[in-house]
């Protein structure tokens, strides 16, 4: 009886957990969703509040001192604003830690996951903003 009740709870918790998208919109087919690349101490060079996807552009210095120029897309402006994003959430010169699901082509481009600001604030993507790559906007998106 107790085990059955616990299983019901686990199932219910699973139902409200962030669902993983399959091919929603254009989906994440082009990106490696197994593990995000972490760009610690990246400097934002541009934040383009555009459609179909806002773009975050940032420079990241790797362990060898090489500067990589990254571009990552996030959820549409109308979706992102439901999570509190505005056209000024990121700005030129911001030093942040960016998490990105890199393209399978291995180019320095990808789908944005989340950003950690120096004050500890975290802002997430909509469609792939959960730590497991699932949606982070299920509470507000409907």
């Amino acid at each position: 009886m107790k085990l059955k009740l616990l299983m019901i709870v686990v199932v219910l918790a699973g139902l409200v957990a962030i669902d993983r998208p399959l091919f929603a919109h254009h989906g994440a087919a082009a990106f490696d969703m197994t593990k995000p690349i972490v760009l610690k101490g990246a400097t934002v060079t541009e934040f383009l509040w555009i459609n179909p996807h806002p773009l975050i552009k940032a420079d990241f210095k790797d362990d060898q001192g090489n500067v990589q120029h990254w571009t990552m897309e996030m959820g549409s402006t109308v979706s992102a604003q439901l999570l509190g994003w505005t056209r000024t959430t990121l700005a030129f010169g911001d030093v942040v830690t960016l998490y990105v699901w890199q393209a399978k082509t291995k180019a320095p481009v990808g789908r944005f996951n989340k950003v950690e600001f120096s004050d500890g604030t975290v802002m997430r993507d909509t469609q792939t903003g959960a730590d497991d790559g699932g949606r982070a906007d299920t509470d507000v998106r409907q």
Binding site: N51, L55, E73, A103, K104, T105, A107
Partner: peptide, 14 residues
């Protein structure tokens, strides 16, 4: 904006 997006992101991502 679409052309910018494809040039900077969509096409490189493949």
């Amino acid at each position: 904006e679409v052309q910018l997006y494809l040039k900077e992101m969509g096409d490189p991502a493949g």
